[in-house]
């Protein structure tokens, strides 16, 4: 039976790539999208979530709009410079015809998990505000979720906003510290692995060449994103962030993980840093003592992951 998947997302080019990956993978059953600010403002995120589902002919998947800003810190802006002002690489798609459900994202998350005990994979790929609110609203979701797979963080490498912080965690560090400490089965798919997986121009061209309209759509929306990677990273390809979380849900054997307690720094120059207890044994107590262990992906079979993504998108309508 496919895994029920609930993605919390700020689409976002790589979010769109991840959603289409999930929709075209038989191992997964997308039961909803909840939206969050991040790559774009939340209203835009909701519009894009609806657009992507409509493109895929999946209007049956509900969308619930979430938080417009972090728990405590002001919203510092969104990543238009990465994803384009429309969040979909300046492709200027027509507005969606459908609407979000009349329920805040956090409530939707709680209801979905409680209604399907032990079955839902919760996959946040943006700032963690909705997830933190949900777990505070109803802590029972901790014991009722199948697993939480997070795209975000950087445990053993530099961040991508600054040397300390990855963008999703930096977006709401307080929420992230709540989510990492909640005590549920959690896997972090962060920059440690996502930056090892590069989709270059040749790969994306081959995807378009071999595939249908889904592949062509991905080729389209990645033009601006590819250009950003070229300008900022001097990279002839793009880092595969959000699709990697979906890949983990499909086949965790693509990754190697390490396990330990995680704290997220909430203040100071390193706010948003995911600082992991990678040692485990200490002489005294500290802020990591008693933190529930989480799994962090540190290695990935990039070649196999890229092949899987290509296979699924090429086979898509």
């Amino acid at each position: 039976m496919p895994k029920k998947l609930l993605i919390d997302t700020d689409p976002g080019v790589d979010d769109a790539m991840a959603i289409l990956f999930a929709l075209n993978s038989p191992e997964l059953d997308l039961v909803g999208l909840t939206t969050i600010y991040g790559n774009v403002y939340v209203e835009q995120a909701t519009e894009n979530a609806l657009r992507i589902l409509e493109f895929a002919g999946r209007r049956d998947v509900p969308v619930a709009q979430g938080a417009a800003k972090p728990l405590l810190t002001p919203l510092e802006g969104v990543a238009h410079f990465v994803h384009g002002s429309d969040g979909l690489g300046e492709t200027r798609q027509p507005p969606p015809t459908g609407e979000a459900v009349d329920q805040p994202a956090a409530e939707f998350i709680v209801e979905t998990i409680i209604a399907n005990p032990g079955e839902v994979t919760l996959m946040p790929v943006g700032p963690l505000t909705n997830i933190a609110i949900a777990v505070e609203l109803d802590p029972r979701i901790v014991d009722n979720v199948a697993q939480v797979v997070i795209m975000g963080g950087a445990a053993t490498v530099n961040g991508n906003v600054n040397p300390a912080a990855e963008a999703n965690i930096w977006g709401d560090p307080h929420a992230a510290d709540i989510v990492f400490g909640a005590g549920w089965p959690l896997t972090m798919v962060g920059l440690d692995v996502t930056m090892q997986i590069v989709m270059d121009a040749t790969y994306l061209d081959a995807l378009k060449e071999a595939g249908g309209r889904t592949a062509a759509y991905i080729h389209d929306i990645t033009r601006f994103y590819l250009d950003f990677h070229r300008r900022i990273h001097g990279l002839g390809g793009l880092h595969t962030h959000d699709p990697s979380a979906v890949a983990y849900a499909i086949d965790p054997t693509l990754f190697a993980t390490i396990r330990g307690g995680m704290r997220v720094l909430t203040e100071g120059i390193a706010a948003g840093m995911t600082l992991m207890d990678r040692r485990g044994e200490w002489y005294g107590e500290h802020a990591w003592t008693g933190r529930p262990p989480v799994d962090v992906c540190v290695e990935v079979d990039a070649e196999r992951l890229l092949a899987l993504y290509l296979e699924r998108i090429v086979a898509a309508p």
């Binding site: 417009a68 728990l71 805040p104 956090a106 409530e107 505000t129 609110i133 505070e136 609203l137």
Partner: peptide, 9 residues
């Protein structure tokens, strides 16, 4: 109260 305000600004 903080949670209520986050859930529904």
């Amino acid at each position: 109260i903080a949670l209520a305000l986050s859930l529904e600004p």
